[in-house]
Each structure stands twice: as structure tokens, then as C-alpha cells.
Simulated scan of single mutants.
Amino acid sequence: MNNVVGTKSSLTWAVHISMAVLVALWLFPTLGLFVSSFRTADQIATSGWWSALSTQERQAPAIRVGGDEVEVDGRFVIEGRLFRATDAKVSAWGTTSTQPEANEPGAVAELADGVTLSVAEDGAYVLSSPVSTEGTRLPRIFSTAATPPEFTFDNYRAILFEPSNTDGMSRAFFNTLTVTIPATIIPIVIAAFAAYALAWMDFPGRALLIAAVVGLLVVPLQLALIPLLKLHNEVGIGKGYLGTWLAHTGFGLPLAIYLLRNYMVGLPRDIIECAKVDGASDFQIFTKIILPLSFPALASFAIFQFLWTWNDLLVSLVFLIDSSGQTTVMTKQIVELLGTRGGNWEILATAAFISIAVPLLVFFAMQKYLVRGLLAGSVK
């Protein structure tokens, strides 16, 4: 019955379920990072991002009663607040760690020697004693506060605009763009010419070159890091953007040539032959026919190359050496934030989301060409 029209086979359902699981595994962490970037440090420490839209109820740290003592109607009164002026409301309070929720807001608790203590819903407390409490140890207040949802842009301001951080993440953002944009355009330009030659031009050794390109796809880039760095230092382009661009170009060319060559081979031969009959040169055919028709493959590789260079840390650490931090990229800056601000999760979440915002925009803007480019040459 699996072949009946209008029904779906079990394999189809398995594929759909698998895709839904993969999308969820990718989407939920990204959504969590986005929501956390707008939350305060206390909210991140006490609740998960999925509860950001609900009221948070948590036990506040114990606070010892303190303040100026004032005599009112023969009693000595001390007034104060449990927390700063916020929208938080006390839901329960107590004076011992064993019973931190013994009293409701507004209730008056009888302490020893005629001392009374009350805590209002807004966190204001009043301690009243028949004798002066100066020099004595005052009681502590344990409270449970309900905090409404709170979102803030302070995390983004702290990273991008505060004087102590402006020279860090914001500069790293533009440094990453300086590395990524040329490192994406250069290999595409070179690979497009090479792919056309390997697809439509006859010359000795073409098959060997194609085999070499396929073989380079499986070579790990870590094998070439040190020799390439030594070569760059001897030539004089090490420790700078130029060396980093060339390194990314060399590591990305095999995949670029492979994708573009497979796509160009699948283009209709009649179009190219008609152009040659009309007297068009190879360069004219390449620029006016092949490139416009190969845009899906070009966009597909641009996505891969942009994502790789934007998120790269290893190549930047090796080829973009700068002790002053003037050329630090975002991945390295986030690692430094992790070391210096390991407890400030709101700062780390914001920095991480800023680093993935641009790749997300690039991916969603060009993803419709991704599948067409990846399937280049797979069917005839």
C-alpha cells in the first residue's frame, strides 16, 4: 500500500522527521543565544532562556537589616529596602535560613525582646524595637522575589559602544570583514577562470589537473600551515592581511574549482559552440555566457567560503600575528572575553550572537542557490 497515490512511504516520513530534528538542533541554540543576549546577568544565572517571557521567582541573597535608627513614639525604628528600585515583588520572606518563606509580604514577625520586623511587597522593611539597637547584631532577611520579564540593550552597548570595549569587539568586527570579504572574492575569481579552462578547453594534462584538484580536497590544511607561514615570512607577507588572504585562497581553491567545474560541464554545449561559430573568443564566452549561467554555483561556494573565513580562528592565529591587538578578529576576541569575563555570561552571549549575525544574513540571503550549486554535475 506504500505505492498508493496520495500516501507517503515510511522512508519519506523518516526523511521529514530527520530534517525536523536537524532544524531543531540548529535553531534552538541560536534562538537561545539571541534571547540571552538581551537578558541581564541575574536572569541568565537563575533561569533558562525559554522562560524569558514569564515572571521569574527566585530566592534573593540574605540581607542584614541596616540603616539609620529613628525614635518614633517611644520605639526605635530602622527602615530600608531589600533591593534597588525595580519591578520585583516579594512573594515570601523569613528571618532564618531554615524558614526563608515563613511570612507573607506585609506580615509583622515577632522577634526576641519585643522586636518586630515587617517586609512589604515592594521590598521595604521596618524594624521596630523598644530599646536602641545600636551596637547589637541586627537580624537577616531571607526573601523570595518575583521578577517580571526584563530585556535590555545594555549588553550590546557594553560591547560596541563603551570606551573600555569599543576598541575590542567593534574593531574586531571590522577586522573580520577585512579578512573575510577579500578571502571570499579572490578564490571565486581565480577558481572561475580555472574551472572554465578545465571544463571547456582542451590542453595536455587537463585530466591530471582535475585529479590533483580532487586529491587536494582531502588534504588537511593543518599540514600546510607551518610551511606556508615560513614561505610568507621569507617573501615578506607574513603577519598581515595579505598573507591571510592568500592562505584562505589556497585552502579554498580546490573546493571552488571542483564545484564550478562540475557545474560548467553540465551547461549546454550548443550555446558555447554557437558562440564560437559567431566568432566569440574564450574570454567573451566566459564573461558573457558562462559566468551568468554559473551564478548558482558561484553563490554556493561564496556561502561556504564566507562562513568558513568568518568563523575561522586557526588561520588567523597563524597568519595574522599582532601583539598590539590591532588586527584581532572576532573569534579570537571572543576567546579573550571568555578568559577575562568567564562569569559574565550576558556579555559572552551577546558577543557570540554578534559574531553569527552576519553569517546568518549571508546564508539566508543566498541559501536558495545553495542546493542548486551543490547538485552541480550530479545529474545529466
Rank of each mutant, 00 (worst) to 15 (best):
A212S: 13
I334F: 08
R269K: 13
D270Q: 13
T287V: 08
G6V: 05
I321A: 13
H248N: 03
L348A: 05
L198N: 00
I188K: 00
F34V: 13
L348I: 15
F193K: 03
K368N: 13
V70P: 08
A376C: 07
K288N: 12
W49R: 00
W308N: 14
M19K: 10
R64P: 06
V214Y: 11
S47D: 10
G240K: 01
F151Y: 12
G205S: 04
M264N: 04
N344G: 10
I356A: 03
F304T: 08
P139C: 02
L25H: 00
V126K: 15
Q284E: 15
F38G: 02
D42L: 12
V119A: 07
W49Q: 04
A224M: 14
V213I: 12
F283P: 01
G135P: 05
G250R: 04
A349C: 12
P292V: 04
A158Y: 08
N155C: 02
G80A: 01
V90C: 03
I226R: 07
Y241A: 02
L361W: 02
Y156L: 10
T180K: 00
T309N: 14
G48Q: 08
D312A: 11
N103G: 06
P204Y: 06
A109E: 08
A197L: 09
T144S: 11
D154Q: 15
L223A: 08
F153Q: 10
L298Y: 01
S378Y: 07
L259A: 06
A107F: 04
L177R: 02
F83H: 08
E346S: 13
Y258V: 01
A92F: 00
G205P: 00
L208R: 11
C274N: 14
T166D: 07
I347S: 08
Q56E: 13
Q367R: 13
A62M: 06
F34H: 04
E134S: 14
T46Y: 06
F151L: 03
R261P: 02
E273L: 09
L208N: 12
T287M: 05
G243A: 04
I321D: 15
L348D: 00
G236Q: 00
N155L: 07
V90E: 01
A14F: 11
R39F: 09
Q222M: 12
N3F: 11
A124R: 15
E69A: 03
S97M: 09
T309P: 07
R39K: 05
N233G: 11
W13D: 01
G48N: 12
T98R: 13
I257S: 04
L307K: 05
W310Y: 05
R206S: 09
Y125T: 05
R372F: 03
D87P: 01
K89H: 10
V179R: 00
N165V: 06
A376L: 05
S91I: 15
G342Y: 12
K8N: 09
G339Y: 01
F28I: 15
Y241V: 04
S300N: 09
V35L: 05
I354W: 00
V219R: 02
S323E: 15
F76V: 06
K8T: 10
V115K: 09
P268D: 04
F304V: 13
E134D: 13
T98S: 14
T244N: 05
L314E: 11
